[in-house]
Design a protein around this nucleic acid. Structure first.
Lengths: 224, 224, 224, 224
DNA sequence: AATGAATGAGCGTTCATTCAT
DNA sequence: AATGAATGAACGCTCATTCAT
C-alpha cells in the first residue's frame, strides 16, 4: 500500500526520487548503514562520512539523495513508521484478526510490536531520542503516532462495540493514545534486556494493556 | 535529608565543592542553564560555552566546578534522582500516606510525579535520552530507578498485604518496575501538552496504574 | 633511493599519501611552514592554525594529511633523517670518497653536514629540542642517529684498518657516537652565527674530530 | 662571591627582592619545584599553578616574586649559570688547581661539570631547550656561556703559556668556546644514560677535549 | 551524474594572569 | 602582604557540507 520510503503526496525528505535501480540500492544501503551506526553510537556522534563509508557510497552521492544529515534521520523515521503501520494494519484487517477476542487481539498486537522492535532496533533509537528531536522529526513522529493510534483505536472501538460497551471515537482515541505510548515504551525497554526478563516484560505489558482496557470498558469506567 | 547537590558520602561529579554562597549560586545557575538548554535543544547540541553564557558565568569558572561536559549532565541526573526520591519517600512515609487506600495512594503518587516533571523538565530530557547514555550516566539512572522502584515496591507490597492479597517481594519489584517506567513515560508526555489534555492524561495514567495493580492483586492475576 | 616523504615500507606519519601534484605541494608547504615556525618560535608555541595559515592551507586540509600536531614534527624528523643519511651515504660510498685520507674524509663529512644544517635549520630545532621529546619522536631520533652513527662508524673502521690500526666494531661505534653528537651540536651552533665566525667554527670542528680520532687510533690510545 | 640569585648590578628577573626569611624560603621552593617539573615534563607543559602547588605556595604569592612564567625560567637559568661558574672558578683558582698538568686540569673540569649536571638536571633542560628559547633567555645563556668560556679560556691560556706554547687571547677564547659547547653537550647526553655507559662517555669526553687542545697547542696546529 | 578532497566555523577544554577579599 | 577563585583568549581538532574536477 505504501511505497518503501513515503506515502504518496507526503513531502519526502529525499532530495531526488531515486528512479534507477542503482540509486534505489544506494539509498537503501545508506539507510541501513545509518540505522546500524545510530543504534551503535547514537545519532549525535554518527558522522555523515561514516554513514557513507559504511554504505560504500561516496559522500557526495549521499548528499545527492539527502539534503542534510537530518534528512537521513527523517527518512528512516518515515520508513519505520510506515512499516509498523503496515504490520499492524495487516493484522487488524486480516479476516481472523477480526474474530479474535479483545484479550487475544491485544496480546497479538503487543507480540507483533515486540517483534518489530527486535527487527528494527533503530526505531526506538530514533523516536525515543530526545537529543535529535527537531521539530521536523517530531512532526514525523506525531504523524506516525497518529496512524498507530488510529490503528489501535479502530480495533478498540470495534471490540468494545462487539462486547456491548460502545466507546465514543474520542474515548477510543484517548485510550489508544495511552496504550500506544505505554506499550511502545515498555517494549522498547524490554528489547534491551535478556531473553527471560524480556518475555516477562512482554507478558506484563499485555496484562497492563488488557487491565486498562477492561477497566475503561467496564460500566462506570469512564473518568469523566 | 539530601543537600542540594548530592547525598553525603556519594562521589560527587563536582571538581570542587562550592562552599561559599556565591559559588553555590553559580553552580545552581550553571545547572539551571544546562537544564534549560538540554530541554530545548538536546544534550548533544548544547555547548559548554552556551551553558556558561546562559548562566552568566565565564567558561573558565564553569570548568572550575565541572571537570567536563558530562559532569554537568551527571550532576543534574543525581540531583533530580535525589529530589524525586525524596519527594516520594516523604509522601509514602508520611503518617497519613500509610492510611490511604491503594487507589488513593497511587493517585497521589502519580500527582506528585506529575508535579515534579512540571517543575523539572530536565529530568526526562536527561534520563530518557538514548544519545547521551554514557555508562556512567546509565549507572546513575539505574541507581535512581532502583530507588524509585523500591519506593513504589514498598508501597505496593504493603497495601497488598493490608488487603489480604500478599505479594512476594519479587512480584512487587516487577510490578513496581512496570509502573515506574510506564507512569514516568506517560507523565513526561503529558507534561508537554496543553493543560486540559494534560489533566486528562494524568487521570488516565492513574487509571492505568490502578487497573494494572488491581488485576495483579486479583486471585489468579499472577501470570506465572 | 628515498622518496621525498618516507622510505618505502616505513610507517608514514601521514594520514593519507598525497598522490596528486597539488596535494604533494600542500604537504611540502605545510612542512616548510612548520619548519620555519618551529625554528622561529619553538615547537611548543607553534600552533597548528599558524602552520596552516603560513602554508596558505586551510586547517582542515592540514588535518587531512596529518592526524595531529606531532605527526608534522615526526614527518619533518623522518624527512631530515633520511636526507642527511642519503647525503652522507652518497659521499662515503662514492668511488673517490674511498680513496681519500682519513683527514680529508672527516673534513668533507663535516662540510657536508654544515651545508645540510644551513639548508635545513629545522633539523636541529627538532632533534635537539628537549621539550618536544615524545617517545615516538625519540624513537625517530634514535633511528636517525643509529643510521648516522653507522655511516660514520663504517668510515672510521675502514680508514683505521687501511692505516694498520684496526678498531673493534664496538670501539668504532663509540667513537662514531661521540663524533656524530659533537659535530652535530657544534655545526648547529655555527649555523646561527655570522659567516666569518661560522667558517672558523667549521674548521675547528674538523680539527676537533680529527684530533680525537687520531688520538684514539694512536697506539695506547684506547681508554680501557 | 655571588649571591644566590643574581650577581649585584645585574637586572634580576625577580619582581621583589625577598628580604624576609619566609620569602626567601618561598622563592627557593618555587625554583626547586619548577626545576623538578621542567625536568619531568618540559618547560612548555609545566603550568604555573602546578609549580605553585608543588612548592606549597599560593599562586598569587608566586606572582609577587615572579612577573611571569618566563621569569622563573630566567631565574633558574641565572642561578645555574652562577653556580657552575662558582664551581669552576673555585677549582681553577684553588692553589692545587694551578699546579696540575693540562691533562689533569681538563679531566678534573670535565668531572666537575659532569657532577654538576648530575646534581642539577634542570640546567640542560633549560639551556639546551630550543622551545623555550626566548631572546631574554638566550641572553642569559649567552652571558652564562661568556663566563664559562672565560673560565676555561683563562685556564687554557695559562697552561699553554706554562708549557711554552703561548696562545693569543683570541685563540684561547675560540678554543674555550668549542670546548665548553662540546663538553657541555656530551656530558648532558651522558647524564641520561646508564651508569657504565655514562662513565665511558665522560672518559671519551675528556679524551676529546685533551686531544683537541693538544693539537691546537702543537707547533703548526693553528688553522690560520 | 558522480566523486572525494577541500573547507572553516565551531567544538570542549586549558592555563597564565589578575584582583576582590 | 597574602590569597586562590575568577577570567577568557586561545589551543588542537572535528565534521557537515560544498564544488572543482
Amino acid at each position: 500500500m505504501a511505497d518503501s520510503t513515503a506515502a504518496p503526496g507526503e513531502p519526502s525528505p529525499l532530495r531526488r526520487q531515486p528512479r534507477q535501480a542503482r540509486s534505489q540500492e544506494r539509498v537503501r544501503r545508506i539507510l541501513a548503514a545509518a540505522e546500524e551506526l545510530f543504534v551503535a553510537g547514537g545519532v549525535g556522534s554518527t558522522t555523515t562520512n561514516a554513514i557513507a563509508a559504511k554504505a560504500g557510497v561516496p559522500i557526495g552521492s549521499l548528499y545527492q539523495f539527502f539534503p542534510d544529515k537530518g534528512a537521513i534521520l527523517r527518512s528512516l523515521a518515515q520508513l519505520y513508521a510506515e512499516q509498523l503501520h503496515e504490520l499492524l494494519t495487516a493484522f487488524f484487517d486480516r479476516g481472523d484478526g477480526r474474530t479474535l477476542s479483545l484479550e487475544a487481539s491485544i496480546t497479538a498486537a503487543v507480540a507483533l510490536t515486540d517483534r518489530f522492535f527486535r527487527d528494527h532496533p533503530g526505531y526506538p533509537a530514533i523516536f525515543l531520542d530526545v537529543q535529535s528531536a527537531t521539530p521536523e522529526l517530531l512532526a514525523i513522529e506525531e504523524e506516525a503516532d497518529v496512524r498507530l493510534i488510529n490503528d489501535w483505536s479502530g480495533l478498540i472501538v470495534e471490540k468494545a462495540a462487539a462486547e456491548g460497551s460502545p466507546l465514543s471515537e474520542e474515548e477510543g482515541h484517548l485510550i489508544a493514545y495511552v496504550l500506544v505510548k505505554t506499550v511502545g515504551h515498555l517494549l522498547w525497554l524490554a528489547a534491551t534486556q535478556e531473553q527471560g526478563r524480556r518475555e516477562l516484560l512482554v507478558a506484563e505489558c499485555g496484562d497492563l494493556a488488557i487491565a486498562y482496557l477492561r477497566r475503561r470498558l467496564a460500566p462506570g469506567g469512564s473518568p469523566a
